[in-house]
């Protein structure tokens, strides 16, 4: 028997597929909202009501409104071009391949990852956690920050050159 949470996972995945595959942008936006509702229900089930309320109000509400308003802004003037639909029709096949491959190869990896989550449960402070066990993450963040600085630098350099 499928449990409530597994049912929600499957529903969220199906909504994601519908959002990606549907031809009409409005249907995509509404499928995305349905997916957000599913994620919010999962968050409630994980006993995280605050995050669920945020997800429900902001992602299922505000982002959907933003998407629909953007679609309505573009729709009038036939902005959308005919895209090759074959790629999207092939998506369920690829998703199935990834799902089966993940079931065979990824499952032990995810089980092993649980040990790291348990390691995090030992009540260390955030500082010791960051500096002693997550150094690679910190390095990655520093690299991303440096990339952002480079982007800003290059944008301003272009403006100077224009003057």
């Amino acid at each position: 028997m499928i449990e409530y949470r597994e049912f929600l996972y499957v529903a969220v995945t199906l909504c994601a597929l519908a959002a990606v595959m549907s031809k009409n942008m409005l249907t995509s936006a509404i499928s995305l909202a349905a997916m957000s509702v599913g994620v919010a229900l999962i968050l409630f089930d994980f006993n995280a009501p605050w995050a669920a309320v945020f997800e429900l109000s902001v992602c299922a509400g505000l982002i959907t409104v933003l998407f629909i308003s953007a679609v309505s802004l573009l729709r009038k003037e036939e902005a959308f071009f005919a895209e090759d639909r074959t790629r999207f029709r092939l998506l369920p096949l690829f998703a199935l391949i990834v799902a089966i491959g993940g079931w065979i190869a990824g499952w032990p990896f995810f089980e092993a990852l649980a040990d790291y989550a348990r390691f995090g449960a030992r009540g260390q402070s955030l500082g010791s956690m960051l500096w002693e066990t997550r150094r690679m993450d910190l390095l990655g963040q520093i690299a991303i920050l440096a990339a952002g600085v480079l982007v800003i630098n290059s944008v301003f350099a272009v403006k100077k050159a224009e003057k």
């Binding site: 996972y9 995945t13 959002a19 990606v20 942008m25 999207f88 993940g102 649980a114």
Partner: peptide
């Protein structure tokens, strides 16, 4: 935990495929 990560990986793949396969900016945001 493993179930959640399994479906998280699947969702991540679907989104990544959508971003890679589509030429439409709106669909890439989706």
């Amino acid at each position: 935990f493993a179930t959640a990560w399994y479906f998280a990986a699947l969702l991540f793949f679907i989104g990544l495929y959508c971003m890679a396969a589509s030429r439409n900016l709106l669909r890439q945001l989706i």
